[in-house]
Nucleic acid binder design. Structure first.
Lengths: 144, 144
DNA sequence: ATGCAACTTAAACCTCACTTCAACTCAAGG
DNA sequence: CCTTGAGTTGAAGTGAGGTTTAAGTTGCAT
């Protein structure tokens, strides 16, 4: 079994056939066709799908994933080094998100202490008191 | 200035008027009306909006946020203790998500070492080798 | 009292990431 | 050959979380 049908590929990747067709339309994965126009997937495509799903967990849009995947070589099967480079980028991204959420957690913990969630005093909402500059009260809630 | 117009409320909360109307339609916030049917917001509503935006950052859907806010007292202005209880729930949730993302990061770090992202060998994709049970290769990629 | 920015509504529209549908074709076992 | 399950397409639908539009009304300063 050299090439996988869409059904088998879906089963092995855990992604629905409809989603796989969608990914193909969006240029995220590729397939060859049989004489009868059915899709056949090489097993190396599984790595692409793995990468896509991991990136989605990290909060990356399909558009960005498509761009990242475009950096893979066209003509040869991607090597470990190719995947390693891409994964490294996602890891840095993931670490940024983790840092952000940890900061949110710490601030929320502080706010549970004071029970406030006040727009006037709470660090969670008015991080650096910068908002007070244009009058009393904050202008936006987030993005510290 | 006891009550805020929707424009002022939007400016102070950093949330667009259209979004505020949407939140009201969805039962997340409330307003009183003037004789001429215009919305007026009490400043305590800012806390609700703060809570909503924070919860969204934590990855909670508006539906769940609505349910959480429904736990607040109807007849009296919520106390610090009320907000504290709700915030505590979100904090636990946030910690769960952080743990999940840290695990993902650690696994991704390992996979950068091996450069694999292999469907056969990689922990990231085939976490506990449980998938091998129904034949060779994994059946789904994520949710360890 | 008038002018104008800010407000009101319902309905339509938007993006994202898919899924579902209808109508049809292909692949493979008996 | 026939049946049946799996695959094909374009188009439409879904749901979340809003934004935009059009037509009309209100609030407030002058």
């Amino acid at each position: 079994m050299e090439l996988l049908t869409i059904g088998d590929f879906a089963a092995r990747s855990g992604v629905a056939p409809s989603a796989l067709r969608y990914y193909e339309r969006e240029g995220l994965i590729r397939s060859t066709r049989t004489g009868g126009n059915q899709r056949r997937y090489r097993r190396t495509e599984l790595r692409r799908v793995a990468f896509i799903r991991i990136a989605q967990q990290v909060g990356v849009s399909l558009e960005e994933i498509r761009e990242a995947l475009a950096a893979l070589p066209e003509n040869r099967t991607p090597t470990k080094a190719d995947w390693s480079r891409l994964s490294g980028r996602w890891r840095r991204r993931l670490e940024e998100r983790i840092t952000l959420m940890e900061r949110l957690r710490d601030q929320l913990t502080g706010c549970i202490g004071c029970g406030c969630l006040s727009m006037q005093r709470c660090k969670l909402i008015n991080p650096d008191d910068t908002l007070a500059a244009t009058g009393p009260g904050p202008r936006n809630l987030l993005n510290p």
